[in-house]
Amino acid sequence: MRPAEAGAPVFSWNLVADFQDMWSYLYMVNAFRAGLIVALVCGVVGWFVVLRRQTFAAHTLSVVAFPGASMAVLLGASTTLGYLGFCVAAALVIAALPRRDREGGAEESALTGTVQAFALACGYLFMSLYKGLLEGPTAILFGDFLGITTGQVAILGAVGAGVLVILAVIGRRLLFASVDPDVAAGRGVRVPALGRLFLVLLGVATAEASQITGTLLVFALMVIPAATAQQLTARPSLGLVLSVALGFVSCWAGLTAAYYEPYPLGFFVTGIAFAGLVLAHVVRISRDAIGRARTLQAVRGAA
């Protein structure tokens, strides 16, 4: 995946030297910067997505990102703007749809599925209309770190900071509305309005993640780190920190691996995050088993 003139750098296990090597290229510096921003934003937004069980909405938004980016390519605009424009617009549409009740019903998911298929088809059309493309749609679908410009990093940073500031303001109310909507409503929290606002934030975060992992692998940074964090802890504050940290590690490790190995970035980021999730499940299951054994022992001891 790296440019041919870079030769064949070899990972030396001397991390300082390796990072110096990678960071001697501006495109790698930009990729790492973008990765840091995306891990931070998606770690926090994703934690709420997992808590609120909105992965289906996240998936829909990420699919909509594909025609957005391919249309941007077709029009000669920045893919970042394409991702952002389409994801936020789609989030606004989903937010404006009347919700019958929380379960949604089969009709709604059928509608969403239809929209997803159409969005993918449109993206493919835009791709084929754009004749000058060398690699085809894979970069948009599965992610690539080449060619993230300093300007794009600035946009990612500014928009991401906006998302984090809004989340910092509404965070506690959003948590209340997410886990306990009835009581929150009784306390004067405007639960539906918060839900709509969160969808827009989710749209922005999805657009940001698409930049690194491609639209089809957004979950690698949006859902997997947060799900891993929630396996490891039930504390909200610690969970948020872990979610960000895990996303950051899988993103930077993935970038490093993709620099030194000739395989795609999307696979590395997703693979590392997935390995973390499996590990977290093993840790939790064994911890639960040990806890149960201890309780049993205590009960037996008392008897």
């Binding site: 808590l51 910092a168 303001v169 509404i170 965070g171 506690r172 109310r173 948590l175 209340f176 886990v179 306990d180 009581v183 929150a184 306390r187 004067g188 929290v189 929630q230 396996q231 802890t233 039930a234 504390r235 909200p236 969970g239």
Partner: peptide
């Protein structure tokens, strides 16, 4: 709360205290 909800009981109680406040 179904089995998948990974929030502690204390957090639920704490939200009753100040969950309607802005900010974190």
């Amino acid at each position: 709360f179904d089995a998948g909800v990974r929030i502690r009981g204390t957090d639920i109680v704490r939200l009753g205290l100040d969950g309607d406040r802005w900010g974190i």
